[in-house]
């Protein structure tokens, strides 16, 4: 939109180099091997995924690493049809909040493996509560997009 008054257009680009820390490092190393790891809280016994160093509720170390299921059920989802800074892929795409089997928290990722161009068609394939399974990239870098998406289990 053209503004009717004098403006200056300016951008800020700030490069950062940020430590993964031990827990994210180990979690993403698992991705290279097609494994999803969580950590278990010794106090509340919840299995947290992604893995983390401590339980946010109990404030105690989570020392037990467990490989969690690559299947789960869809808690909630969206159909994203706009472009925005930081979008994980070209729209339209489906995002999903997934409860991986045996874990106690939600895991965010994409839902795919079917046509995405039409919302009404997507609604036939995507329902809250449905079972989904991780689909991995052939070449994995050790980051969250090593999982391409979660596909519905027919």
């Amino acid at each position: 939109m053209v503004k009717e008054y004098k403006t200056i257009k300016t951008q800020v680009a700030l490069p950062y180099e940020i430590a993964y820390g031990a827990t994210w490092t180990r979690f993403f190393e698992g991705f290279k091997e097609r494994k999803i790891y969580g950590t278990k809280c010794p106090q509340c016994a919840r299995i947290l995924v992604p893995a983390r160093a401590f339980c946010p509720r109990c404030f105690v170390d989570t020392e037990d690493w467990v490989e969690v299921s690559q299947e789960g059920s869809l808690v909630s989802w969206n159909y994203v049809n706009y472009r925005y800074f930081g979008m994980p892929t070209e729209p339209p795409y489906v995002g999903g909040l997934i409860r991986l089997d045996g874990t106690d928290v939600g895991f965010l990722h994409l839902i795919g493996g079917f046509g995405l161009s039409d919302l009404e068609e997507v609604k036939k394939n995507v329902k809250s509560g449905m079972k989904v399974r991780a689909v991995w990239s052939d070449e994995r870098q050790g980051n969250i997009m090593d999982i391409r998406y979660f596909e519905p289990i027919k």
Binding site: Y16, I18, Y20, W24, F28, P50, V80, Y84, G86, M87, P88, T89, G95, L108, H109, L110, N143, I144, M145
Partner: peptide
């Protein structure tokens, strides 16, 4: 920057 940003959260 490890998880929520790459997955496109806002």
């Amino acid at each position: 920057p490890f998880y929520l940003r790459p997955i496109g959260m806002n």
